[in-house]
């Protein structure tokens, strides 16, 4: 205990003063962080040490780092001339086929692996070996088997993403509570009713997590396949412009990929929220 406190210090007000709210503080700082970095980038790349050779002597070499304005201009150019659209279309196609196949195949396999114990045990060594392999490394093998067309890319996309779906779905089925199964059979629910009323509601959040992860990994598959063997696609566009020192266009490719990744991620999150109504909101 304190002996003869010299003066009473009040801590409450001080602490609450620290919490004074700028309206929508989160947004304020997010914008600050976002714009701030862009401005620093732009200024740094415009700060030429040697005016004789503009763009090569900057604090941040323009030819290697580009600059927000350069990226903007190049973007306007490529979108208005239309050269970028075929790349986007082909990448979207590869992504879409691969992602859809991953979801269907992955959910089916994950449900059966979770539900049938013996099937799970018999395939366990293979599944966990494949799960620990960077499946991207299989691409040269796929090319040997399926050539360098659309098929091999879709196969790579599937391989890159399917395990996220399989494993999450399987864990979902395994986390079905014994008690809920007991209740269902106590009320005489049939197998189908048990699956509909107990197994699926428990598993769907897990499946959706898997699907969300798979969406991102499919994009990795697309990029790697297009780096390796392609003459079209956003990955190819990035690689080509990297090799020709066209740095601004590399960033355009990156922006497209990142933007698309965010878009799909949010889309799946919307679906997740729709299925999450029965959870207390702190879990969201």
């Amino acid at each position: 205990m304190t002996v003869a406190a010299p003066a009473m210090t009040s801590r409450g007000p001080e602490r609450s003063r620290r919490r004074i709210k700028i309206p929508n503080e989160r947004l304020f700082y997010a914008v600050l962080g976002f714009v701030g970095l862009l401005v620093i980038w732009e200024l740094a790349s415009n700060f030429d040490l040697d005016p004789e050779t503009p763009g090569t002597q900057g604090l941040v070499k323009r030819i290697l780092m580009s600059a927000p304005t350069l990226i903007w201009n190049a973007g306007i150019e490529d979108f208005s001339s239309g050269v970028i659209w075929p790349h986007i279309a082909i990448s979207l196609q590869e992504w879409f086929y691969g992602f859809i196949i991953s979801c269907f195949l992955g959910i089916t396999l994950g449900l059966s692996l979770g539900w049938f114990r013996r099937f799970r045990l018999a395939t366990q060594p293979l599944v966990s070996a494949l799960y620990s392999t960077p499946t991207i490394a299989l691409f040269p093998l796929i090319v040997l088997i399926a050539g360098i067309g659309l098929e091999s890319k879709v196969i790579l996309v599937v391989l890159a993403s399917i395990f996220a779906v399989i494993i999450n779905t399987m864990v979902g089925v395994q986390s079905v509570s014994w008690k809920h199964l007991e209740i269902a059979s106590s009320f005489g629910a049939s197998q189908t009713q048990i699956v509909r009323s107990v197994v699926l509601p428990t598993t769907i959040p897990f499946i959706l997590t898997g699907v969300r992860l798979a969406a991102g990994r499919s994009l990795v598959g697309v990029v790697v396949a297009e780096f390796q063997a392609a003459n079209q696609g956003v990955g190819f566009y990035i690689a080509l412009n990297g090799q020709t020192l066209n740095t601004a266009r590399v960033f355009i490719g990156l922006l497209l990929l990142g933007g698309f990744g965010i878009f799909v991620g949010e889309l799946v999150r919307l679906v997740e929220n729709r299925f999450d109504a029965w959870r207390p909101s702190i879990h969201r």
Binding site: G235, G242, T247, G253, L254, G258, G261, I262
Partner: peptide, 10 residues
């Protein structure tokens, strides 16, 4: 959201 592997050319 970005496949970081796409940064390789950079």
């Amino acid at each position: 959201a970005l496949p970081r592997i796409a940064l390789l050319p950079l």
